[in-house]
Amino acid sequence: MPLVKTNVMRILEQHKIPYTAHEYPYGKDAVDGETVARMLGQDPARVFKTLVARGKSGGYHVFAVPVDKELDLKKAAKAAGEKAVELIHVKELLPLTGYVRGGCSPVGMKKAFSTVFDASAAAQETIMVSAGKIGYQVECAPQALAALVRADFAPVTAD
């Protein structure tokens, strides 16, 4: 277990969701997800990044997609029940979610937003998401994670 216990880890424990914490070396700047996957010796298809988008309705939506894939905005809009969605600007992330770029987790945001995990997550035994702090990831069953944040599974990545 890492020396640091993040809010995400506390929430998982409160809900009795088993997880494995992973720690990776980091500097001041966030590293991209594929680098994180490599540093942790993980298949990038199992390591998910958390993206936040604003829908045409003005509502916010959270998408968890494999770090080696891009979010398809058309598919994301359809999954979120929106006409269109666009990713929020990085400066909006912290005030909106409570997380910084590179440490954004679908678990424990300031408010509960509609959340969609890419359909590929459902086929994995476990997936990794940010533990809410740069340098830390949590690995757990995608179904348990999705149930916790009331997420749907849908194909939202670009082909």
Rank of each mutant, 00 (worst) to 15 (best):
Y19P: 13
A122Q: 11
G55E: 05
L94Y: 10
D152Y: 00
M1K: 05
T97N: 04
P142R: 08
G41D: 02
R10E: 14
A64L: 15
L71P: 03
I88Y: 09
K110C: 12
A154R: 04
P106I: 01
P95S: 01
A84P: 10
K49G: 09
G81C: 07
S114D: 11
R150Y: 01
V31Y: 04
A37L: 08
L145W: 00
C140V: 02
A112D: 14
T115V: 09
A79M: 03
R46D: 04
Y19Q: 14
V85E: 00
G55S: 05
G33A: 06
A147I: 12
A79F: 14
T35C: 08
L3D: 15
E82M: 09
E23H: 11
M128A: 02
K111P: 09
T6Q: 09
D43M: 05
E92N: 05
L93R: 07
T97K: 10
D68V: 14
D72I: 01
A147D: 15
R54P: 06
D152S: 13
Y136I: 11
S120K: 05
S120R: 07
A131D: 01
L3V: 15
G135M: 02
V36W: 05
V31C: 03
I88L: 05
V149Y: 03
Y99C: 07
I17R: 12
D72G: 08
A79Q: 10
G108D: 00
G41I: 09
V138P: 03
K110I: 10
L94S: 10
E139W: 00
S120D: 10
Q42T: 02
L71Y: 07
